[in-house]
Design a protein around this nucleic acid. Structure first.
Lengths: 508, 508
DNA sequence: CGCGACACGTGAATC
DNA sequence: TGATTCACGTGTCGC
């Protein structure tokens, strides 16, 4: 769990809090499970989520464990062509790029992980300690602010990376993210600044984002790195490490509103809130307290005081949290699906999405017109439908770019990348044999294959990745392992190899 | 401006409140102008809005009257390909469908109008009365809750329709919109229920949404229809009609937070807050007061009391308001750009956008392939545009539709597939050497490579595709061509080949 | 009356 | 140090 905080929302209903958290340490198994559940949930949620909304509606199973089958369900249905595969991103979970076809993480949380801005680039992975239940714990630690994406920074990419590892299964999501990463980064720290807020961390349990932010920042900044690098500690840490937390706690807010609460989780914990129905308040609370231990908290909860105002608030509070999370998840999803993200800012994400959307439309127009006119000379000035194309410079080349200019290179979204775009490759070694790769370049025929070959030749097994090939070629490998026994690969080796393959992919 | 409420945000800076409002009645001319201005503003805002953000930055003109030229500007710029033309939506403004290329309404308000849910379907247009300045007035009327999109309903489609006529120029945007309309709806009332909250109403001045909601609901419900149908009155009405407003006002909230304020606008008015720099507090305030007249308000501002806490808050407060508004605007914009909105829910909008985006990608692929194949047989069964594949019901025709319901299976997200899942492969030949492949299966190590290899072995060159690898492996090849001279591949060949590779990917 | 949805204000963090 | 951004909790409204 390192960075990635997955937050699961109960399968059937409530597992909100991060299941992933549970097994932080040991890694694999549980986490995965958690992830799946999350995914599962997601699906369900998606299906069901908006109610009549679009997302498929199928609630069914979900509940408890059956994540898997849920999934299968989808698959079946899936035949589902339509979907390109989005990355589902769950605000809570850090894995950003998930590509879920389903949109709605909301009810059932999903995973996601958004790249964070990477304040603390140095820290490779931030596992999340908190277990699901424990999750609360974590939250507490981090604190109230659990919210969605914030800047957090530090964990940013890490989160992404980490998560994936954790939940290889889910990994799928990451897909589209590429673009982002390309910019700089989604995968890793690559892009220092770009991704600001959204990053994955989002929420572990509840609000990974802030959580991450703070946690990361504080911890990282303050103390840290050492301890956290590999392990989960980060998250736990807060809990465990009183000091840092304290700082956080002090702020904890609670004081302000004062009361509220009622429920447990209240501030510190947050984690649960997502859980929705099944509130694990208790557990979480307990943990929280730990975390809360800091001064202020007491003021707040006092214990769990609920005496406060009326009873109702608590419920609403949870609901609101869920809502927020859902919204964030969607936002992340959108983000993951949009190639060129530019800023991680919420508004920017939205804006980028809009722009991208426009580009696509434009492109469609162009194609359409072309199609019509095609055969013959067509191209003329006529501009069939509307002036589509003339303008569309964007369509092809720089679609959205516009904005970008300045940041010209950084993100170049796959789309944007004119094919000519020189390849950009970022490689980051995770601990063990893990490798994160972010590659972005102009799309040229054969590049996909050549890249895959290159990776294969490098002895890397891609476990989690999202690759998109449109205008440009973008690949974000969230998790890959070196199966080739031999020596450890050096990032540069990988990089050059990939660049080479990109350079001469046509020759494939 | 009948329905469409354009909200202009000062050109240079602040014209926040709705210019459009001004000329309600007479219809055409002024309205248009208003619209234009709105548009104009929007552009500017867009351009400038996010600062470094993407949106083009160009403030220039905007200001006063020049709506037209602005537009032309756009066009020129337009050559500007980039933009597809979005409909800009401003949370504050009600006009939904404007198609502005620019994304960022925030700073400079823009216009928009979102289709509302149409609570009051019967009412065709809701013009906004309030003029810019007056806008405040309006706001006041509606009330504090000016927020973003709320349900409002009634105006929904109407707004859209109206607008278009007004700004033919912008019409371009519509282009893409089609999809929407096809969906059911965006244009007219067609879809009765779908659009709920976002509707255009949004806000005139500050928080259109709620405003609208309440205003609309109350008014509509309570009284209304008759008067409003064609004309602008609706909007004005609130202002004019005290009664309705009052109801609204009562709720106004303000009381809760109580203080804050400092600034003028405080609650009731809100309008200004968006304005940012130039706060027209005064004007707005004045108006507000009118609106505020309801009981509670007084409690709140009391006047403008600012005594409260510290100094800082106020500023931040305003900033936050702006931010919120901006975000809402973007959201609306997104909404306006996405044809099939289904629910007006924020989350739904996001989700729909995501889905729509996917569709577009798919469509592009289709077109692309078609295009390539075109000359020749093109027509085939392929169903040119859309439905390429069987699965993609959505893609073509009903793109979004899916959403809906039925499509249980339809979406199956890639993610979902548990690894165990048997591979599913769908292959469709496009004309020419084009091939569409949809593959979905459990994720197992090496599957990516093996699949790539299989494709390579098949002599297929992937040109457009999205591949995700997480829990499951999902690959959607939108466009691939057979470069292997030889014979034409048979879909089944491809399919079996891929299935084999998936089956034994580990052997890779 | 609960539940969902929003907006608001606020504290905090980052730039 | 100011400006933004975010998340949170809360009040409110509509179903």
């Amino acid at each position: 769990m390192k960075n990635s905080m997955v937050w699961i929302e109960g399968s059937g209903e409530e597992l909100e809090i991060a299941s992933w958290a549970k097994s932080n340490n040991d890694g694999g198994f549980e986490n995965n499970q958690g992830m799946e559940m999350g995914a599962l949930c997601t699906f369900n949620s998606m299906l069901e989520a908006d109610q009549d909304d679009d997302w498929y509606i199928t609630n069914a199973n979900a509940a408890g464990g059956g994540g898997q089958h849920v999934i299968s369900f989808l698959n079946e249905s899936g035949g589902n062509n339509n979907q390109l595969l989005l990355q589902a991103v769950d605000s809570s979970a850090s894995c950003s790029s998930v590509f879920n076809s389903n949109l709605d993480p909301s009810h059932n949380q999903v995973s996601y992980f958004l790249p964070q801005k990477s304040l603390i680039p140095t820290i490779p992975s931030y596992p999340f300690e908190g277990t699901f239940d424990l999750g609360c714990h974590e939250n507490g630690i981090l604190e109230n602010r659990v919210g969605g994406f914030s800047d957090l920074g530090a964990q940013s990419q890490l989160g992404t990376l980490n998560l994936c590892p954790n939940n290889p299964q889910f990994g799928a999501n990451s897909f589209l993210q590429l673009p982002q990463s390309s910019g700089g980064n989604s995968l890793l720290f690559g892009r220092p600044k770009i991704l600001k807020p959204l990053d994955n961390f989002a929420s572990v349990g509840a609000q990974p984002t802030l959580f991450q932010k703070r946690a990361a920042l504080r911890r990282n900044l303050g103390s840290n790195l050492g301890s956290l690098n590999l392990v989960n500690q980060m998250n736990l840490k807060p809990a465990s490490s009183g000091a840092i937390d304290d700082q956080v706690n002090e702020k904890k807010r609670k004081a302000s509103s004062g009361d509220d609460l009622e429920d447990i989780s209240i501030d510190g914990t947050n984690l649960n809130y997502d859980s929705e129905d099944q509130v694990f308040d208790n557990s979480s609370v307990n943990k929280l307290e730990e975390s809360d231990k800091n001064g202020v908290n007491s003021s707040i909860t006092g214990g769990d005081q609920k005496g406060k105002k009326k009873g109702p608030p608590a419920k609403n509070l949870m609901a609101e949290r869920r809502r927020r999370k859902k919204l964030n998840d969607r936002l992340y999803m959108l983000r993951s699906v949009v190639p060129k993200i530019s800023k991680m800012d919420r508004a920017s994400i939205l804006g980028d999405a809009i722009e991208y959307l426009k580009e696509l439309l434009q492109k469609i127009n162009d194609l359409h017109s072309e199609l019509e006119s095609t055969p013959s000379s067509s191209s003329l000035s006529l501009t069939p439908t509307a002036s589509f194309y003339p303008l569309s410079p964007m369509a092809s080349g720089l679609p959205a770019c516009i904005k970008e200019e300045h940041s010209p290179s950084s993100f170049a979204s796959p789309l944007s990348s004119p094919t000519g775009q020189p390849a950009r490759v970022e490689v980051r070694l995770r601990e063990g044999r893990g490798v994160n790769i972010h590659m972005f370049c102009g799309c040229s025929p054969g590049i996909l294959l050549s890249t895959m070959r290159a990776i294969d030749n490098l002895g890397l097994d891609i476990q989690q990745a999202v690759i998109s090939c449109f205008n440009g070629f973008a690949m974000d490998v969230f998790r890959a392992e070196q199966w080739l026994d031999g020596q450890e690969l050096h990032p540069d080796q990988i990089k050059t190899m990939l660049l080479d393959s990109a350079g001469c992919h046509e020759m494939v």
